[in-house]
Structures are given as structure tokens and as C-alpha cells.
């Protein structure tokens, strides 16, 4: 597992049923592109998060395929529909096989 990986997610605490809400996610990760060289001129091997998904109560909201051209600490903003109260599940997949997860509950007014 890459060191110091910490997911952060911003989701409103509540919404009206059927509403569309904006979600912001950020995960601290160095996203080593595999293009850089170290001080000895050797290429630093690629180590990135290659996929990010967001689901709500088991149904998919967004599925992102990530290439090395996405910046350090990958940030995503998108909108999700909230048909009922439930839980958002965020999942990041690392090149080294690690999976980072975060969840956020939301209530319906």
C-alpha cells in the first residue's frame, strides 16, 4: 500500500428525495506517472490509482478510469441523484492492488 493515502469526500448531510447533489472527492496519493526519473537517471516506476467508483445503495453513480495524466491527489467532482435515504460508497483502486474505501450516509427530508 502506498503510504499516507487518505480519502476525503464532501457530501451534503441531507437532500430532498429525487434531488441531484454535488459530490467532491479527493484522495491523497502521489500518482507517480512512470515518466519521471530519479537523481540517478533511473525511471521511477508507475504507481497510480487507476479506477474510482461511486455507488449509492448498490447502484452506480460514476465509474472513472484513470491514467497517469491525472494529477497528484486526484480530485473529482460530479453530481448524483438521491432517490431515497442511504449510503454513498466511494472506492479507489490502486495499481498495487490496494483498495481504499469511504462511505457517507445521507438522509432525505
Amino acid at each position: 500500500m502506498a503510504k499516507g493515502v487518505k480519502p476525503r469526500v464532501k457530501v451534503p448531510k441531507s437532500a430532498s428525495a429525487g434531488d441531484s447533489i454535488t459530490i467532491k472527492t479527493l484522495i491523497s496519493h502521489k500518482m507517480e506517472s512512470g515518466q519521471r526519473k530519479d537523481s540517478d537517471g533511473k525511471i521511477i516506476p508507475r504507481s497510480i490509482i487507476n479506477r474510482f467508483t461511486c455507488d449509492f445503495n448498490g447502484e452506480n453513480v460514476i465509474d472513472v478510469t484513470i491514467e497517469p495524466a491525472v494529477s497528484t491527489n486526484p480530485y473529482f467532482q460530479f453530481d448524483a441523484k438521491v432517490p431515497e435515504a442511504g449510503e454513498f460508497k466511494f472506492t479507489w483502486y490502486d495499481d498495487d492492488g490496494s483498495v481504499y474505501e469511504d462511505t457517507k450516509a445521507i438522509t432525505v427530508e
Binding site: 441531484s20 455507488d55 453513480v61 472513472v64 480530485y75 460530479f78
Partner: peptide
């Protein structure tokens, strides 16, 4: 970006 059935819009942003 692949939008799923619960995507609220077809907007997304990243860096």
C-alpha cells in the same frame, strides 16, 4: 468518466 444510472447530471470535473 462513465455515468451510471444514478448520475445526477452529465457534468464532471477533475485535475
Amino acid at each position: 468518466f462513465k455515468f451510471g444510472p444514478l448520475a445526477g447530471s452529465r457534468e464532471a470535473s477533475t485535475r
